[in-house]
């Protein structure tokens, strides 16, 4: 979808929310839902930071680490990609305390989502690094750069551009997965929705608003990542034209 359509959808979604807010049957729920949305955003942002850190670390470990490190990173990626996010969330929430490791629900949520998306992200980072043209590697070797210099100055800046669109998709996946944290007692947007639904049984207005709020957040991520992509790929001969 073009960036214009996306912005159009964002404006339309906000307009629909504004329009619905003029009716009491909807505006009644808005403050509570927005409060929940705030927690959703907090978890999504912290989770994304953790995911990027884990993704980069795991990718570098798999590409350049010593054998035990490489092995560890592979196990991490396979385990977190092979099981569901909900299973990981519940496992961290219910099983770790039995080993004496107590964490509050918020920490568990950020950890589980960040580690889960980080595992997918490591494949993105790895793919992007490997996709840098071989000539770039050879030239860096010819210029007698150390591996760290090569990565920092030549490879990663180019890989970064290729990483932006898939990371955008992963951030949206992460945002959507935050709905799961409602199942471990956190009062995020999904939890508020369920709570209000149970007490008022006004299912249609509540869930319509919730879907719209999630839509606005996803669209904001998509549009933001598109802009970042345009900025990052300016002046490069490869990738989508700015």
């Amino acid at each position: 979808m073009g960036i214009r359509t996306l912005v159009g959808m964002l404006v339309a979604a906000l307009a629909v929310i504004g329009l619905l807010a003029t009716q009491t049957s909807y505006s009644l729920f808005l403050p509570g839902l927005l409060q929940g949305a705030l927690l959703t955003i907090e978890i999504a942002v912290l989770g994304s930071v953790l995911a990027v850190v884990m993704g980069v670390l795991a990718a570098l470990a798999r590409l350049y680490g010593a054998a035990p490190l490489r092995w560890l990173a592979t196990v991490y990626v396979e385990i977190f990609r092979g099981t569901s996010a909900l299973v990981q969330l519940f496992w961290l929430f219910f099983v770790l305390p039995q080993f004496g490791l107590l964490m509050d629900a918020f920490t568990v949520a950020v950890l589980a989502l960040g580690l889960n998306v980080g595992a997918y992200g490591s494949e993105v980072v790895r793919g992007a690094i490997l996709a840098v043209a071989p000539g770039q590697w050879e030239a860096s070797i010819a210029l007698n750069m150390s591996r760290a210099q090569m990565l920092r100055r030549i490879i990663l800046p180019q890989a970064f551009v290729a990483m932006i669109p898939p990371w955008g998709n992963l951030f949206i996946e992460l945002l959507k997965s935050t709905a799961l944290v409602s199942l471990i007692t956190l009062t995020d947007l999904a939890f508020k929705a369920q709570q209000m639904n149970q007490s008022t049984l006004k299912t249609v207005p509540i869930f319509t608003l919730v879907l719209l709020i999630y839509l606005v957040m996803s669209l904001a991520i998509t549009i933001g990542m598109r802009f970042l992509e345009q900025r990052a790929s300016a002046g490069l001969s490869r990738g989508r034209a700015a």
Binding site: L175, K176, A179, A190, T203, L215, S218
Partner: peptide, 19 residues
């Protein structure tokens, strides 16, 4: 398609189940 893909599956499940 964009609408369905940008909202959480959990909410969609609740939506269908309750609505």
């Amino acid at each position: 398609v964009e609408l369905i893909r940008s909202t959480p599956l959990l909410i969609q499940i609740f939506f269908l189940y309750f609505v």
